[in-house]
């Protein structure tokens, strides 16, 4: 309850272009909430608005008692919202370990850096072997793991994952989703953005369909699977 992420009547966009409007959403603490929707309808924009990379125009975002909207990105992460961006956005000339350590840049996270790093290595053992490799030279799947690992290093209250399966081979997607399932079982609050509706439905507690910048349908993963017409109309499945 106290750590729910609550978005009310949100509007956001770029320059003259308005992307999100009238968007209201509650992502419950300890649950996995998925946002699905066709390409270009504002899923990434939503996460960027939450994490403060772009400005919120109207409406409000709260995490528990904290008002998040209006804060710059560096202040949002300090409140515990961690954004693992689409396309990873690693620091290409740093090693895997340096990338992970950047995740714990803020003092509160830095104090627990050693313990959390061990946890991340247990969850993503491949990263330990690649510790000293320069991020630029990693494969797509390895990059994704570094991106997720770096997000975990922040020890946040909410983890936002933007298209963690994008551009990966099926086996690697499988591995990444096993990691996400593990995080869900561990009781982490996760906001997952995914274009692949079936993937999201299979893992999420709650699914929201984002269509033309606003939420169009909400339900559980099982409910979504029982609505083939939704999938067909919006997702071309």
């Amino acid at each position: 309850m106290s750590d729910d992420l609550v978005i009310s009547d949100l509007a956001a966009g770029y320059g003259h272009q308005s992307v999100l409007h009238d968007l209201t959403l509650r992502a419950q603490a300890g649950r996995l909430t998925a946002i699905i929707g066709p390409n270009g309808h504002g899923k990434t924009t939503l996460l960027r608005a939450i994490s403060g990379l772009i400005a919120v125009r109207t409406g409000e975002i709260r995490l528990g008692a904290d008002r998040i909207s209006g804060l710059p990105a560096e202040a949002v992460v300090a409140r515990g919202i961690v954004h693992v961006p689409q396309g990873d956005l690693l620091f290409p000339d740093m090693t895997v370990l340096e990338n992970l350590r950047m995740g714990a840049f803020l003092p509160a996270a830095a104090r627990q850096e050693k313990t959390v790093l061990e946890e991340v290595y247990t969850l993503l053992p491949k990263l330990r072997d690649r510790e000293n490799q320069i991020a630029r030279t990693l494969s797509g799947g390895e990059r994704r793991m570094v991106g997720i690992g770096r997000g975990l290093m922040a020890s946040g209250r909410v983890l936002m994952l933007d298209e963690p399966s994008l551009g990966l081979a099926p086996i690697v997607i499988e591995q990444i989703y096993e990691v996400i399932a593990g995080l869900r079982r561990a009781g982490r609050s996760i906001l997952l953005v995914e274009e692949n509706a079936m993937r999201a439905a299979a893992i999420a507690d709650q699914v929201h369909l984002l269509d033309h910048g606003t939420l169009n349908w909400s339900g559980t993963g099982a409910e979504l699977s029982g609505r083939p017409e939704l999938l067909e109309t919006y997702l071309g499945v």
């Binding site: 994490s51 403060g52 990379l53 710059p72 990105a73 560096e74 992460v77 300090a78 961690v82 954004h83 961006p85 956005l89 690693l90 620091f91 290409p92 000339d93 740093m94 950047m102 995740g103 840049f105 803020l106 770096r150 922040a154």
Partner: peptide, 16 residues
Amino acid sequence: RATAQNRDAARLMGVR
């Protein structure tokens, strides 16, 4: 270095 390599990512890490 983080800011030089990726400004948005650096902000997401809490770098001002």
